[in-house]
Design a protein around this nucleic acid. Structure first.
Length: 435
RNA sequence: GCAGGGGUUCCCGAGUGGCCAAAGGGAUCAGACUGUAAAUCUGACGCGCAAGCUUCGGUGGUUCGAAUCCACCCCCCUGCACCA
């Protein structure tokens, strides 16, 4: 089994995807010797993963493409405890049935990124609850806990702020998280010959714990590799927008919203993100960057990024839907849309509502546009109205129209007798359909 | 349990009897400029179209008037003690 691609580590390095490695650079040689088994854990802290998990998921895939066998671990056990790493506050515990429900959703999500039928190095999904649920406290304390030094643990950077910071503390429960995760690695080593754990750079402490424990428990020499935390040049948090977190679940973040998120990437970040989030060869990305630099005006990189990532997560159909809406909303005029086009937009994921004509007379636009989710408060709509930033079928509405919803949405103004495309500001679009 | 320090609008953080819907910063929204970018500038930023309504851990009280004073309670943090 030596059909591995020896350029993997170098490619990861070129993409800036390696934050830290254990083993003084012996990992590369270790990987080149043959197909290895590696794992990455995903804790169920919500009913879906978000784009923060995309880098590790894609990295698992990169390893598989290079001939190694990935294991995606879903943290049915660790999710019950809560990882304190670099968290400012203790987390509230979720009930076991909620976590169990999330586990199943996340299991399905991670499964889409790895190939279970891959000849020679098939992927697997495991749940750490399977080997911890039946473990007795005494056994755990004796067999695992004994190998950990509290002196060592409290010096970990990942829990330092919780221990030192005034006004916060850390419970024994969260403090123990590292032992559980370390035990996972030792178990996977024992049962699947897993010799590498990858994770975000915030996982370094936990990963090293697992490397040590595996050696102490089984005498195994295993490795750890961490991926960089995704940051933005302007310092704001990656993965959040006005409407909240960008989820991987299309029911929570539509392919259109997902596509738009990537399209809005700042120039200062976009080439880095191309390296992180796509499988495009680094050389190709460099070419795009050079071409953009040479050209005046709008770069092509954001478009490439949005297409690549959306296609990867939501498939050709999801991408096509996202592009259809984008084309309709951001270029050309609405006049070019056919009735079938408008019907398709709603199916494609353009936010859509039904108009209740009976209530239009005494419903202010502020209420109408807030309730449909375009704005968080009437104030935003009012502000937009005051600046002529609300367009209904391309007609600007002003503050004086606020109480004239019935006129704004008059049947004779509708496209094909029933559609209204409302724009609030430059980027928010919503389709209203007469009942 | 004792002592000390805290709980303010999304976050940080001012405010210690009226001028407070509550400084300042961040985040966020809209406008201008642009490239659905960044930077910059402008406006908004508890809720409400409005009249107005509801906030400063909770409940009562003092007062013409309280985020600010008093009482009790809840929660968090830091020490100490108890359990040994």
């Amino acid at each position: 089994m030596s059909s591995v691609n020896g350029d993997l580590i170098r490619d990861l390095q070129a993409r800036g995807l390696i934050a830290q490695m254990t083993g003084d650079n012996t990992l590369e040689a270790f990987l080149n010797e043959g197909s290895r088994t590696l794992y990455c854990g995903f804790d169920p802290t919500a009913d879906s993963l978000h784009i923060g998990s995309l880098v590790p998921l894609l990295t698992l895939q990169r390893f598989q493409r290079a001939g190694h066998a990935p294991i995606a671990l879903v943290g049915g056990a660790t999710g019950l405890i809560g990882d304190p790493s670099f968290k400012a506050q203790e987390r509230k515990l979720n009930t076991p049935d909620i976590v169990a429900n999330w586990v199943e959703k996340i299991r399905a999500q991670v499964s889409r990124f790895i190939d279970f039928d891959c000849e020679g190095n098939p992927a697997r999904v495991v749940n750490n609850l399977d080997w911890t649920a039946g473990l007795s406290v005494l056994d755990f304390l004796r067999d695992v806990g004994k190998h950990f030094s509290v002196n060592n643990m409290i010096n970990k950077e990942s829990v330092k702020q919780r221990i030192e910071r005034e006004g916060e503390g850390i419970s024994f429960t969260e403090f123990t998280y590292m032992l559980l995760q370390s035990f996972d690695f030792a178990e996977l080593y024992q049962n699947y010959g897993c010799t590498l754990q990858i994770g975000g750079s915030d996982q370094w402490g936990n990963i090293v714990g697992g490397v040590d424990l595996t050696r102490k428990l089984h005498g195994g020499h295993v490795f750890g590799l961490t991926l960089p935390l995704v940051t933005k040049a302007d310092g704001t948090k990656f993965g959040k927008t006005e409407s909240g977190t960008i989820w991987l679940d299309p029911a929570k973040t539509s392919p259109y919203a997902f596509y738009q998120f990537w399209l809005g990437t700042a120039d200062a970040d976009v080439y880095k993100f191309l390296r992180y989030f796509t499988f495009l060869p680094v050389a190709d990305i460099d070419e795009i960057e050079e071409a953009d630099r040479a050209a005046q005006g709008r770069p092509q990189a954001q478009g490439v990024l949005a297409r690549e990532v959306t296609r990867m997560l939501h498939g050709e159909d999801g991408l096509a839907a996202a592009e259809r809406i984008t084309a309709a909303m951001f270029s050309g005029s609405l006049k070019n849309l056919t009735e079938a086009d408008l019907e398709q937009l709603a199916l494609d994921g353009l936010p859509c509502s039904t108009l209740d004509e009976a209530q239009l007379a005494d419903t202010p636009l502020t209420t109408l546009l807030t309730e449909c989710g375009m704005a968080k408060a009437g104030r935003e709509v009012k502000d937009a109205l005051g600046r002529n930033a609300v367009l209904i079928n391309e007609v600007a509405k002003g503050a004086e129209d606020n109480m004239k919803a019935a006129q704004c949405f008059a049947p004779e103004q509708a496209l094909f007798g029933r559609f209204f495309v409302v724009k609030l500001g430059k980027k928010k679009n919503h389709l209203f359909v007469r009942a």
